[in-house]
């Protein structure tokens, strides 16, 4: 994403913050909506748009789980594995999905590049345990391994979203 595009996003909200440093996180999140992860160029563009150094911008980006500094699959699927979900079958769902995508139990990106699966800490959908989140805007549950597998079938063929909010 270009610095101008990022500027167009953060300028309207600049007055809402006493210090412009607060714009760094919104700028990073917005820059990520283009490709689903942040490249070196994206970090430089955020730095230019916000007026902070690329090193500073990267130091912020590297702190947050949902800012990706490496390429991901088209969709990122987060499988909650925290206690409430574990008690309802999260480990079985997780392992089933990893094996289905030909991945080790550490997760990763499917061979066709469509889907990245990762473990997530409590997603706040414990009443729907075990649950899965697709990027950050859709959470589903309760799921069995079979239902989760069906969801993956869909994700492998679904068109990419216009913006990646993850």
């Amino acid at each position: 994403m270009t610095a101008d595009q990022i500027r167009a996003h953060i300028e309207p909200i600049r007055d809402e913050f006493a210090e412009s440093r607060s714009l760094v996180l919104p700028a990073l999140k917005y820059a990520q909506t283009e490709k689903g992860h942040l490249t070196r160029d994206d970090l430089d563009a955020v730095a230019e748009a916000t007026g902070f150094s690329p090193a500073y911008v990267e130091s912020v980006a590297s702190f947050y789980d949902r800012l990706y500094l490496e390429p991901t699959g088209t969709r990122v699927v987060s499988v909650c594995v925290t206690l409430s979900c574990m008690l309802r079958g999260a480990d079985e769902v997780w392992e089933h999905l990893c094996e289905r995508e030909g991945l080790s139990h550490h997760g990763g990106t499917s061979e066709d590049g469509r889907v990245t699966i990762q473990e997530a800490q409590c997603l706040g959908y414990c009443d729907h345990a075990p649950c899965i989140q697709v990027d950050a805007d859709e959470t589903l549950g309760p799921l069995t391994p079979e239902a989760a597998s069906q969801l993956m079938d869909d994700l492998h063929v679904a068109p990419a979203p216009e913006e990646f909010w993850r």
Partner: peptide, 12 residues
């Protein structure tokens, strides 16, 4: 063995 959901959600 986990406690499986009685009625799992359907994928979209």
């Amino acid at each position: 063995e986990p406690m499986w959901p009685a009625t799992p959600a359907q994928a979209r």
